[in-house]
Amino acid sequence: MSFIEIQSVNKHYGAVQALYDVSLSIAKGEFVTLLGPSGSGKTTLLKILAGFDPVTSGTIRMAGRDITSVPPERRNFGLVFQGYALFPHMTVADNIAYPLKVRRRPRGEIAEQVRAMLDLVQLGKFANRKPQELSGGQQQRVALARALVFRPDLLLLDEPMSALDKKLRFDLQEELRDIHRRLGTTFINVTHDQEEAMHMSDSIAVMNHGQIEQFGPAFTLYRQPANRFVAGFVGKSNLLEGRIAQGRFQAGDIVLSLPGAAAEGRVALMLRPEDVELAQAPVEGGKAALPAEVVSATYTGDRAIYTAAVGPEARFLVYGSARTGLIPEGSRVHLAFDPQDCLLLR
């Protein structure tokens, strides 16, 4: 039973088409992230959900009700903007109280809820400051508090972390996930950062060129990407272009017998860097092995990162253990992997 139902939404800006037949079903209480590179249509979809931009065609439903042409002020959705959009002429407390004042709640109730919200985002001490007297991370939390205080049916966040530094981002992601769990509100977050998406979301919609390429939990996107774009955008991956012939995958000199190599034609073989091992000898049972040469070796402390050349063109990224030190550049090795871990992408 889906709570938010986006059905075949198309959006044109004059001659530019920003969204192509976008459909998405979001369950109540879910944390969904729209993930995609810049210009892929994430903000456009968010603006349509918020009601700021009309759709060219398609419908948006909430709990079965068609809300496609309901204006933003009657949708009851909370919004956190990329630049936070805090009111500079109001204190932090007045910013958070604004949606409650609009709703003409009694004074005492407003004060109480504002205090509860300030506690939730740990900004109790800053109630009487102006937003411009706060750090970026604090402003972001005020924006979050203001968007949640009126118990919206849906919270929309447009790249809320993009202006913050990396360490702070991670902490705020934790905090946001925690708040989501506590309140149980449905969240739709927008980001171009796949780590952020995987860190926080129940489900991720990967967007590219105004289309949804795949929608699913992080595990599915990572282990079972639907196509080359998702494989490349979500995590690191090795893609080897080749073709299927006589039930086997072929790319130049490389020939592999793989499960599921049925339909003939051009494909890309995908292999995650952590699924490959560098072996000194042509290995043990069940594993495929490709002779290769270590082109570069980097030590990062928690792991070793290798680039290995297979033949003249193909380069493989491989994560190895760093416990015994690095395998030196120029070494002749074998890339060992389980054929089960390979995925063929059309």
């Binding site: 903007f81 959009a85 604004y98 609009v102 968007a147």
Partner: peptide
């Protein structure tokens, strides 16, 4: 003025006049 300020207020339920 940042147009997002008006949008933010709208998302919080404020009418155009408000």
């Amino acid at each position: 003025l940042d147009p997002d300020l008006d949008r933010a207020a709208a998302s919080m339920g404020a009418s155009r006049l408000h």
